[in-house]
Each structure stands twice: as C-alpha cells, then as structure tokens.
Amino acid sequence: MASLIACPHCGPRPKEEFTVRGDAGITRPAPDAGEDAWHAYVYLRDNPRGRHKEHWHHTSGCRRWLVVERDTMTHTIHAVSDASAEGATA
C-alpha cells in the first residue's frame, strides 16, 4: 500500500489517517429490489488483481468519504476523488 493518499481536500496525507471500507462499485439497492440484489450488495465483491476502486474515509482528516483507485498488485494509487463527486450513495 502506498504510504500517502492525496486527499482532494487535505492534500497528500499518510495512509494511516484513512480507513478503508472496500469495493466502491456496490450501491445500495431499493428496499424492494429483491433478494438477489440485496445478496449481491451485502456479500459479493469485486476483488480484482490490478486496478480497483474503493471507498476510503479520511477519518483523521476532513472526514470525507473518498473513492480511491488503487492497484492491488503494485499498491500504486492512480486517482482519488470525493465520493459525492462520483455520485456514490453507498
């Protein structure tokens, strides 16, 4: 894992300030979306070897949720943006 994450609000900060939540590709289904949709949301995850988009929380900084695009093989961080800018609602 890279040592620094460039928060769009706070600049490059040590990764220890952040908390990872995981796969940013999942979005909360509608309450009546059915069991399959809810099962996928709660239990199934993209888990690529390579580039992956994840939710990270800048817990010890601005406390914003971010979407971090990271390579799970090299640990390089390719892009960081505010989760609301991505339209993510999870």
Binding site: M1, S3, K15, E16, V20, G22, N47, R49, H52, E54, R70, T72, M73, T74, H75
Partner: peptide
C-alpha cells in the same frame, strides 16, 4: 491483516 485489498504479498510498516 493490513486491512486493504492486496495481492502483493507484502504489507505496511504501520
């Protein structure tokens, strides 16, 4: 575990 998804077989100093 370190806590983030990884296939790298190496972790962090923290």
């Amino acid at each position: 575990i370190d806590g983030y998804n990884s296939y790298a077989q190496r972790g962090n100093l923290a």
